[in-house]
Design a protein around this nucleic acid. Structure first.
Lengths: 336, 336
DNA sequence: CTGAAAGCGCTTACAG
DNA sequence: CTGAAAGCGCTTACAG
């Protein structure tokens, strides 16, 4: 069944059916109704491929997610969910493409095959070949995270620098004098991963500003690593608090502290920048600047739609810096 | 740039370029090379919409995920990741469609617009209108979970009945005499949600078989509910162990127990059927029959590809029943 | 207000 | 081994 069949049954031309569907040309009330009846009766939906070919647009957005080797973190998952949701509101479909690993075939299909009208790129690296590729392709795109040369690029990002800085200030206000940053993995830091870099920058400057002694440890993205990391931290003399952006290690850190006989927050304070539900699930609930992943995903879609609509418009971006939600994992430095 | 441009530059016809690309007709070594050179030079990729229209297939799979209102559980997220990954291995793209809520427009676009060659449907209900719709559409599909009339339907599922039964046996072996099942939400149970129903069935029969006293509580999918639920459980005289399939409530249950001063596993045993990383992240790590979500997602793609290739082939399905991984959350019944 | 026709960029019988 | 042409199912100038 196709548009010709509808036209035949309604006794009109195919173009009239098309215009009745799109509303791009006035169609007399009577024929419009007749067409609509036939469409409803047969349950007709225009073929997406044919429409895409004729219109030159796919009504589909591409979402490039990190290679599936690593498990997605809680925040990343929220991005995916919110992008899909926001796109659906605009009647757009979302094509998910795993990329960044070896098999960039999927990514190339997305660009070369013109399968999508625009792309949202998650987890961009400071220097990211996919961004160069995207620029060269001419396809509108928005990144979640910033890149080395953000000129002419549209993005949304978390202001990790400000957020981590606030965490340090909070700990300093509570009297902590020696704190440590539990960062993402050493490889990620080495590869110039933005959040890790900026968390470090914010941590360092805030510590200096407040005269607290700050140390940093890198921690792989999983619970056992977090547990080992907690043990390392406790070997550092005088450390009474930690701040982290490592979601996947969080539960492990908590367990390591617990195993060492330390109670949160009486004996040790922990604070971070993580997804809200992760913070809430911790025992005790983590005081945290909750990453507004849903808003960010929604906003990324918004920006992408604007860029698609006006490719030559001046670039736009948005930096998110939510307030710290006080929960139960920090308290004044224990007098020892 | 299109296939005509390539043909012109290579000095051949468009059909020859097409055949050189697909390999469906022999092309002389010399012209094939010439064509390949031009393609490589210009970075040509055939337009996906045009190809889909001509071929009558989209090389795209549809993945229908639960309505985005509820947050996805850990297991559901693993499904998504593994489906996308498995599809990529076969050079297939994945269109993600949120459905089950109000806006089933996305779902209808998927089917009516023939945007995909087949569909994987997550979180099917016992009676699920989407399954009926899919059947009527003629589009090949595979469900994750079973439906009321599974005849002629292809699916993968977790054998919750067997798994929960094993959990009860394990607790009985440890001497527990009164145990409770912490199920999913009452609404889900009422709506005939398969995992909840079968968990209940397995729990009831195993408890009877072993002569242990079994009670059931329903619990919404979030941590606070889990915490409240734990309090309820502790008010039931004599209960010394619980088994659960509620991933989202798990951290809350643990916290509720902890808050009541009960140590896991010395004072109370907890066991469940959840995603492995959730079990590992708990403190202490949860003894659990880990849902093999990755394998299930991969297998679902496998089945879907078979069904697409041979729509009239006899139906296939696979029931997963992984062994219980003994971790640290169960121990013999405390003598009180 | 409506129709006939060209065109989107491919694939694939049909010929040779 | 290769080409000319029809066709996939739409949209949209062009005419009237």
């Amino acid at each position: 069944m196709n548009i010709g069949e509808i036209a035949r049954r309604a006794g009109v031309s195919r173009s009239t059916v098309s215009y009745a569907l799109s509303g791009k040309r006035t169609v007399s009330e009577a024929t419009r109704r007749r067409i609509e009846d036939v469409i409803a009766e047969l349950g007709f939906k225009p073929n997406a491929a044919a429409r895409a070919l004729a219109e030159g647009r796919t009504r589909t957005l591409g979402l490039v997610v990190p290679p599936a080797g690593r498990r997605l973190t809680a925040v990343q998952l929220d991005f995916v969910a919110s992008v899909v949701e926001a796109a659906a509101v605009h009647d757009l479909d979302v094509l998910v493409s795993p990329s960044g690993g070896d098999h960039d075939r999927s990514f190339e299909r997305l660009l070369g095959g013109r399968r999508v009208d625009g792309v949202i790129l998650m987890e961009v690296r400071f220097e990211d070949p996919r961004v160069d590729r995207l620029r060269q392709s001419g396809l509108p795109f928005v990144t979640i995270g910033r890149v080395e040369h953000p000129e002419g690029s549209w993005w949304v990002d978390v202001d990790y620098e400000t957020l981590i800085s606030r965490c340090v200030h909070h700990l300093a206000d509570l009297g902590h004098e020696r704190v440590v940053l539990i960062n993402r993995s050493a490889e990620l830091v080495a590869s110039g991963y933005g959040p890790a870099m900026r968390a470090l920058a914010g941590f360092t400057s805030a510590a200096e500003e407040r005269g607290v002694q700050g140390s940093t440890v890198c921690c792989p993205d999983d619970a056992p690593a977090g547990e080992a990391c907690a043990e390392d931290v406790l070997r550092m003399a005088g450390v009474t608090a930690a701040v982290t952006i490592n979601e996947a290690a969080l539960a492990g850190v908590q367990r390591g502290l617990h195993r060492a006989g330390l109670r949160l927050p009486q004996d040790f304070s922990l604070i971070g920048v993580v997804a809200r539900h992760l913070a809430e699930d911790l025992n005790p609930p983590l005081t945290s600047a909750d990453v507004p992943a849903i808003e960010m995903g929604t906003h990324a879609v918004q920006l992408l739609l604007e860029r698609i609509a006006a490719p030559e418009a001046p670039e736009r971006h948005e930096l998110f810096a939510p307030p710290i939600s006080l929960r139960s994992s920090t308290s004044p430095r224990p007098r020892s």
